[in-house]
Design a protein around this nucleic acid. Sequence first.
DNA 1: ACGCGTGCCTGTTGGC
DNA 2: TGCCAACAGGCACGCG
Length: 296
Amino acid sequence: MPELPEVETIVKTLSPQIAGKYISNTHVLHDKVAQAGKDLLPFVERARISCVFRRAKLLLIGLEPQQVISSVTYHDANLPTAIPLFMVFHLKMTGRFFVHPPACEPLKHTRIIFDLSFKADERNDAAGRLFFDDMRTFGYCRIMLPEDFASWPFWKGLGPEPLVTSKNTLAERFFIKRSSIKSALLDQKIVAGVGNIYADEALFAAKIAPDRPAQSISLSDRICLASYLQKILRQSIEECGSSIRDYRDAKGNAGAFQNNFSVYGRKGESCHICNNPLSFARIAGRGTVYCPYCQK
DNA sequence: ACGCGTGCCTGTTGGC
DNA sequence: TGCCAACAGGCACGCG
């Protein structure tokens, strides 16, 4: 389940494979996955891939189309400037990218295929085929102009990136939430990119019980939590993310950070600190593993 | 406006 | 061994 470190890893492994190539054709095999901007598909075809980047858990592909589409100039602080067209992907739980050789047939869960060519005027897949696969079809692709981001509530509501925000600012933001600290960590409006794995791991590292009301936690403890969250996210990126079941990067490689888990997926196993069995509860609607002795 | 519960999906897991 | 309910979970949505 790709969270911030996994999407970051996918960006790193995908970008060198596709940047600078052209999208010669698109094949939407599962209509629901192409969630918005289907009218812009003709502009995607023959466009040059100029960049691949991440915001929150979204993977974005910046495109340079052959024609001018819009005369509107719009600046969004979270978008690179002078990119006229974007494809935005949410991988949700099971979304994946992979670049296959030319003429490769769709797999069982392939939802969109992008044929890649080396030149704009070549309508072939000589540079390979980019597959967007998603077993559970929770993931989506949106094709967007820069100004479309202004009217996308999810995008506009996203909180700051945890790795380029001070721990004091993050600590202050956790305090906004009226409910549990775990729900604050998972709330993309409070901080962007954190999911169930890194929420549980950061709470264990900071020795904070996941069901504590966010506003009951002292500033110094919230700063401690922010600091561990950053440390864990950075460490996971270094280890190419966590592979639970089926996560793979765009080269098909698994990450290694799952070997560092203290609590996630360890329900009933012994706490690395106190040796007592780890508890499990449903908090903020998510399965939550924690140590009832170490986390207060 | 906010928080909570439910639905979306399909492959995997675990209990009987 | 086989069947099937429960489970995994990010986010949109509807409700109170």
